[in-house]
Design a protein around this nucleic acid. Structure first.
Lengths: 144, 144
DNA sequence: ATAATAAAGGATAAATTTGTCCGAATATAA
DNA sequence: TTATATTCGGACAAATTTATCCTTTATTAT
């Protein structure tokens, strides 16, 4: 569904959100350890998220990554996915056709439209605040 | 959503289905031309589909690929996807976690479950016979 | 039988994605 | 001001996916 980079990006964002809720800034090292991702690769992804204003980064000692508390419920999964994987989920054809559209549909166009719409709705209605709360009470997990 | 190989596999299967409906066997060359796919790569994919008894292949002059007419409505998209991409769509975690389950869920587990179930339902209820009929009446397309 | 045709299969190459390494830039604290 | 901690950014490496090429095998028609 998503690229590995996007999976790491979502997991990292959820972890950062949980810590930001407690006003804690977290380092790359922490993040990679907590979500079980390769550190250097994760760094690249965090850079992308930072450039897209999804997370904030601070250099130097006691630096790290964080998300403004008031943004926590505003950041949706869709923002992260768009920043990392682009809009392929939004506009791509299920069979990889470039010209697939309502006017010139592929054979599975209508079936995929239903799926795509439910994916988009889900991505746009799920925010980091909600996702991080399950971590806090131990009902959800980010590693393994 | 699917690998390129799987996309080509589905497109090829739909084309073969359409021709098989007219009792016509089709060659690799034909298929690649009609679905706009790289020939040699398509050959590999057709081999896989053939080994999985999704399509039949015949060597030699006037050989090619076909699907038994009585199988046309029995072959579902799910069969093709499973043969080429495996069951990652069926069992994989949306965030790439190995151990994600009802007992140990990732933060988006429930949201993804809904999506996954609708994908599975769609794949298991869509057959080649239906998909190829749109090609015949010119309402759907397999190229570009 | 022989030649021609078409898929099968193995080896290899190109492209993309995933992942690593290291020096530069920046901020903090002593 | 200096040493240290941390992200940034570019270059590189490994792994995977996509794609090609060429020889072998099977089948058909002559």
């Amino acid at each position: 569904m998503f690229s590995k980079a996007c999976e790491y990006g979502i997991r990292a964002s959820i972890y950062i959100a949980g810590q930001s809720h407690k006003d804690k800034r977290v380092s790359l090292k922490d993040i990679a350890k907590e979500i079980g991702s390769p550190e250097a690769f994760t760094a690249k992804i965090l850079q992308q998220l930072s450039k897209n204003n999804i997370i904030d980064s601070v250099k130097g000692p006691s630096g790290g990554f964080q998300i403004e508390q008031k943004k926590l419920h505003k950041v949706k999964l869709s923002h992260i996915v768009l920043a990392i994987d682009g809009d392929s989920i939004y506009k791509g054809c299920g069979l990889g056709l470039k010209e697939c559209s309502e006017k010139v549909p592929c054979p599975v166009h209508n079936q995929f439209k239903v799926i795509r719409n439910s994916i988009i709705t889900m991505l746009e209605s799920t925010n980091l605040s909600d996702l991080s709360s399950g971590l806090k009470d131990g009902s959800t997990f980010l590693k393994m």
